[in-house]
């Protein structure tokens, strides 16, 4: 028998994987490094968290470990994207041509 909790979990997993897909699509479509970091890391953070949440709902024994994974991703993902963006700016990767302003270079 399939109960509602399992179906809810499966739907949440599906939504999460769609976000992961959109994040990678952004990775291909965006014109410069910083925009790629934005779409790549943001969409993949929520996508992974939703996927894990769905699996945790379907398999409640694993909730502790999956919660740990979720917290870990929520903490490390912004840090790694920030560090990459800083390194990219440090080696003077150019912004795309339609960019409006760059205050960091001015100072």
């Amino acid at each position: 028998m399939e109960n509602t909790l399992e179906i809810t979990g499966a739907i949440i997993t599906l939504i999460g994987s769609i976000f992961l897909f959109l994040g990678s699509l952004g990775l291909v479509r965006m014109p410069d490094i910083y925009n790629r970091i934005q779409t790549g890391t943001k969409a993949s953070t929520l996508g992974t968290i939703l996927t894990l949440l769905g699996i945790a709902l379907m398999n409640t024994d694993w909730f502790g470990k999956i919660l740990l994974l979720m917290i870990f991703i929520l903490i490390t993902n912004p840090v790694s994207s920030h560090v990459l963006a800083r390194a990219a700016h440090y080696i003077k990767s150019p912004l795309t041509k339609i960019s409006v302003t760059d205050k960091l270079v001015d100072n």
Partner: peptide
């Protein structure tokens, strides 16, 4: 840097894949 970003995203996707 582009390659490292996509490596990072690939890792996160792989975590979701491993859990599924």
């Amino acid at each position: 840097i582009d390659r490292i970003i996509s490596f990072d995203v690939l890792t996160i996707i792989s975590i979701a894949l491993i859990v599924i």
